[in-house]
Design a protein around this nucleic acid. Sequence first.
DNA 1: TATGAATGAGTGTTCATTCAT
DNA 2: TATGAATGAACACTCATTCAT
Lengths: 196, 196, 196, 196
Amino acid sequence: MPKLGMQPIRRKQLIHATFETINEVGLADTTMALVARKAGLSTGIVSHYFGDKDGLLNATMRHILRELRDAVAACRARADANPRAQLRAIIEGNFHESQISPTAMRVWLTFWAASMHQPELRRLQRSNDHRLYSNLCHQFHRALPLQQARCAARGLAAMIDGLWLRASLAGGPLDVDQIRQTAYDYLDHHLPPNAH
Amino acid sequence: MPKLGMQPIRRKQLIHATFETINEVGLADTTMALVARKAGLSTGIVSHYFGDKDGLLNATMRHILRELRDAVAACRARADANPRAQLRAIIEGNFHESQISPTAMRVWLTFWAASMHQPELRRLQRSNDHRLYSNLCHQFHRALPLQQARCAARGLAAMIDGLWLRASLAGGPLDVDQIRQTAYDYLDHHLPPNAH
Amino acid sequence: MPKLGMQPIRRKQLIHATFETINEVGLADTTMALVARKAGLSTGIVSHYFGDKDGLLNATMRHILRELRDAVAACRARADANPRAQLRAIIEGNFHESQISPTAMRVWLTFWAASMHQPELRRLQRSNDHRLYSNLCHQFHRALPLQQARCAARGLAAMIDGLWLRASLAGGPLDVDQIRQTAYDYLDHHLPPNAH
Amino acid sequence: MPKLGMQPIRRKQLIHATFETINEVGLADTTMALVARKAGLSTGIVSHYFGDKDGLLNATMRHILRELRDAVAACRARADANPRAQLRAIIEGNFHESQISPTAMRVWLTFWAASMHQPELRRLQRSNDHRLYSNLCHQFHRALPLQQARCAARGLAAMIDGLWLRASLAGGPLDVDQIRQTAYDYLDHHLPPNAH
DNA sequence: TATGAATGAGTGTTCATTCAT
DNA sequence: TATGAATGAACACTCATTCAT
């Protein structure tokens, strides 16, 4: 018998290598040979586990979005149940240590751009988008009338994406506190002062 | 007998064709042959006017940013000189008719992503970024203390970019009024009520 | 604990799977993985039993030719000993039920074509060819002078192969009676009327 | 301006190189690089003129069939109009100098085999088949009742194909006279003695 | 100024084969 | 005996670029 249970290990290896490669040279210059070499594997193995290049890229994007979702969920679970705390937790999750590395942001933006012309990536992107807006809207609505809640949610969602966007271009290390503070500041201006 | 003065005409033709091609098939699938065909010209002509592919892409990005800058400048020129009106004019310019077509947004995001790994594009991008922040900061500072002005400017810049970002993924026609309203709403919450 | 006596079983399974695969997708698209899957076995097993791909193909061709030879021999054994009956039996064997399925004909022609550039297959093909000619010649010679017998044998051999060839391209079910009749008709024109 | 009118020249070069390559190494080992090298051109040029490999192979098969058709037509034009002469001319054309080189026969059979699994090649093959049968049938019918004419035509068509088939496997130079004689002999046995 | 024929390096992908288990 | 993970050479095809005209 061959070594069993290699599939999840190899998949993780390759997804990680893809992630690193995209960060280093950009999606346009990411070749399967480069990814395979970074993973320390042969080129043929990629097809074995992911079918083709698109399969690998899809899996990588799924992985990124799942990690983001998990980070947000973890922050929210640790936070109080009141709207302000939950909204702060969503912001915190989106700019959590694990998420805001320059690498993560660059790759995330790369996939966002790619999703404009690749239906499968687009689907993933839009469902992720929608979840963020939906969560924000729900929490705002606990403290604001529906119309205002929707407006505030749209604004905060845009700001979170915009902060990622601008951070993706920054050269040096990010000032995470400042980024988070900008978003918290939005909250302070949009939630009623007495809201918890 | 060579026709004289063709250079600006051909350059415009090719930049326009590049713009359209990127919008239709994405940067990854934009080949010089495709661009040339859309422009109704031969493949060889591109090298003649732009040197190589990068030259064409740089020129195209410059063209886009210049149009954005002009739109903002025009809006500001028409507006009152007071901070609120100027800030609204900046927002208005960024989401002006000429700028917010789905096409423009997609191409703009495409270049943003590409700029992460191409120094020349990156330089263009960052200087454009900086101008937006700088303008916002200056206007906010006329109504707010420096620290608050900077924070508000960071927030609004992020929101403007974020609104573009989210709009780039939308399938159908954009609700421009809603987009603009979201940004105006930010202003209302961050400018002192009595500021003009 | 290795199962004993699997060899003949596995070989039959794999040869049959090869036969079916070639018929379905053609030799060019016949991969070992496809054959193995059709046999319900793993890819590695083929090398185990046949060494390599050529070994499998050689074995498959041998199998086909053996079946053809057996079909002819069986028909001849059932027939009268006189030349006409023997010649008809040879024709009958070549177009016997077991041989004239569209599948068999396609695979047979596939190997014929392949044999042009593969010495081992070529050897098999030529020896088979020669046997057909030789048998025909011998029987014709019992009723005709040598020169005429040779000519008739060449003609009938060519006709038999040609009928297979043309049948291999037919789309629908074959009109076996018509095929056989065409060959019998040749006999009637070339054997002396009084020959038995 | 670039050199004009290269298209027909290059196409001929490449088709000829394909023909030679298939003859030498077989279709399975015919790579585009091999063909291009034999033509003294680069690999990219093939796509430029034929789209892809299938396009090149289709064009090559078309070329072969056209040459065969032309050879037959030329022989028939030179022959008397009576059925026997026309039938002999058809045989002569099919085994004309230009057609019966071992090379031509091998390539012809190669395409026949390939046509079993490639719809476009199959279409070409069948239309060619049908023309041969149709021509034979028409001429036989001038000397025989319809039913017998059809039977004779089927037989001669099969014999012609069979003679090609058997010749394709011959190692050395072909005995063309013997091949032709075998087919003429068929005629003599199937046409009424007094037919012209 | 403009063409498009021609190049050839580089890509994703396939697949026979090997081998540890 | 049997598996299937893993390899890497070979393939068809793409495309930016060059250049004779």
